[in-house]
Design a protein around this nucleic acid. Structure first.
Length: 493
RNA sequence: GACAAGGUGGCUGAAUGGUUUAAGGCGACAGACUGCAACUCUGUUUUUUGUGAGUUCGAAUCUCAUCCUUGUCUCCA
């Protein structure tokens, strides 16, 4: 029997602002859409957290036995730059500044994004569609909305008629809690020469001016799609008119997701998403991240240590563990101290996992493994509460260490269940990787073993000066010797 | 200004009315181990939940006020 049948998953739905029992549209299957990156620069650390949160969601749904179709798009067109005089596409602007083709920008940062997500052990989505690959479908969707009378054309651009949409009994504002009538009254005076009927209307299609590089032909002339449209189009194309889960960063709630609901609902007549999930923001040293103030770090720079924020390089497993120690709906503060603390805890967890295969079994267990396992699942079933799940894993860590020290016992049956559960949570669900692996080399190993041997001889001769010199100088090189009961081992930092 | 998410120990971060005298991790302290350390393991420790009122037999959890942080405000992920 699939695990999802014995686990009642609850998900916090941003639409209802409450935790709801998760019920899929189609039994046993989940359709999940997450707004992907805009590939005009390196993926942002805050973005990484959002994608990592949904990677964990994806992993847990798979673990529960659901057949999941996970769609995460690549936005390679359509986002407009604010500081430009005229609306300018971010990708086109970057291309103009670097004097290259827009598609070169897209290619470069798409490759970077895939590189980073692979390094951080993300599972690839089922489908990763691009906005530029769905221009035809976007034009079709605009036509459909126009046919329903909910969009209008002005000077080669098409806008969604928010006021009319609401007059027909809909609720633009349902997700973000905004009151459109108030907004209209508040902003009418400020809006001068807009060609829109109302300032709240948003673009479905935008006419390209003569300088705009990325452009496509359409029934309304040459132009490019509005940036909310692609997600509506691609989610309905690959997941249908009603999808189970739609995710994204908290900052996308308005206007992006609000517009998506309006567009999709205008076409299909149904609520497009059953469960809206929003991951919270990431702070850096208690402040929002900002390139201009230098309070910024790239995901790749964490791994290499080439940055001014952190005292050393951290492995992807540590970073992942750090992020998973907080709830995805909480604001998380990224800091050097936080990572150092996580590194310790992470090492302890991974040490215990590696001890599992060497544990001795007994006739009875002094720990209720079945109950513990259920508590782990209960944590995840409660809106993916990874911090609680990790706390439970540490209960097992303590138990494992006690068995090792002969202060606790476990039956072979329980050990099998414990091992299976630990591996499932650590590797499959949390997606942690063992950073310690593939460090060092045979040559290094041999060299250090030689030094350990020399040091052992020195210690036997009580030549503490020499033995400490070997130990301390190796430590300075990042090689730490560990004196145990059965000899000396070492780790490379 | 409006809308949204938050403010919990030395740090990080759970818990949304009683099973929590606030989980877990880190730190600190002690013990084991060690030639001494480090590593590792074991144990102990800290706060009364931004501030001020209120509801309740009972509140971190509900209500009101107030201060602060973060996000968004419609052609700026």
């Amino acid at each position: 029997m699939e695990l999802y049948k014995e686990n009642q998953l609850k998900i916090y739905n941003s639409l209802s602002k409450s935790k709801e029992v998760f019920e899929t549209v189609t039994e046993g299957r989940v359709g999940m859409y997450v707004c992907g990156p805009t590939v005009y620069s390196n993926v942002h650390l805050g973005n990484l957290r959002t994608f990592m949160s949904f990677d964990m969601v994806f992993r847990y749904l798979l673990h529960l036995g659901y057949k999941v179709r996970y769609v995460r798009n690549i936005t390679d067109a359509g986002h407009l730059e604010s500081d430009a005089e005229e609306g300018e596409d971010k990708i086109a602007k970057k291309a103009r500044l670097e004097q290259i083709e827009p598609m070169e920008v897209v290619q470069r940062y798409t490759v970077d994004f895939h590189d980073i997500t692979a390094k951080y052990n993300f599972l690839p989505p089922s489908i990763e569609p691009t906005a530029t690959g769905h221009i035809v479908e976007q034009i079709e969707m605009i036509k459909e909305i126009m046919d329903k009378g909910l969009a209008y054309e002005v000077n080669g651009s098409v806008y969604f008629d928010v006021v009319k949409y609401n007059e027909e009994g809909n609720n633009y504002g349902i997700l973000s809690g905004r009151n459109i009538e108030d907004a209209i009254h508040n902003t009418r005076a400020l809006d001068g020469q807009s060609e829109k009927k109302n300032p709240q209307d948003f673009a479905l299609w935008k006419q390209a001016n003569e300088f705009h590089i990325m452009r496509w032909p359409s029934p309304w002339g040459e132009g490019f799609p509005g940036w909310h449209l692609e997600c509506s189009v691609m989610s309905s194309k690959y997941l249908g008119d009603q999808i189970d889960i739609h995710g994204g960063g908290m900052d996308l709630k308005f206007p992006h997701h609000e517009c998506e609901i309006a567009q999709s609902h205008a076409c299909s007549g149904v609520q497009p998403v059953n469960y809206w999930m929003h991951a919270n923001m990431l702070l850096l040293n208690g402040q929002k991240m900002s390139k201009s103030t230098g309070n910024s770090i790239l995901p790749g720079e964490i791994l290499t240590g080439e940055n001014s924020i952190l005292s050393k390089a951290f492995g992807p497993g540590v970073v992942r563990f750090f992020i998973m120690q907080a709830n995805y709906r909480s604001v998380l503060d990224f800091s050097n101290d936080g990572l150092l603390a996580s590194e310790k805890g992470y090492n302890r967890l991974m040490e215990a996992v590696s001890l599992l295969s060497a544990l001795k079994t007994s006739g009875s267990s002094s720990f209720d493994v079945v109950k513990w396992r259920q508590e782990c699942y209960d944590a995840m079933n409660d809106d993916f509460n990874t911090p609680i799940a990790i706390a439970k894993l540490f209960d097992a860590v303590k138990f494992i260490n006690q068995i090792k020290d002969n202060k606790a016992t476990i039956t072979s049956e329980d050990l099998e269940l414990l091992t299976k559960t630990m591996n499932a949570f650590v590797y499959d669900i949390l997606g942690l990787v063992n950073d310690a692996k593939d460090q060092g080399s045979n040559k290094l190993d041999g060299t250090v073993e030689l030094l350990i041997k020399l040091r052992k001889e020195a210690r036997e001769n009580k030549d503490w000066a020499l033995s400490d010199k070997i130990r301390d100088e190796l430590a300075e090189l990042g090689i730490q010797l560990k004196d145990g009961r059965e000899g000396t081992t070492f780790t490379v930092n």
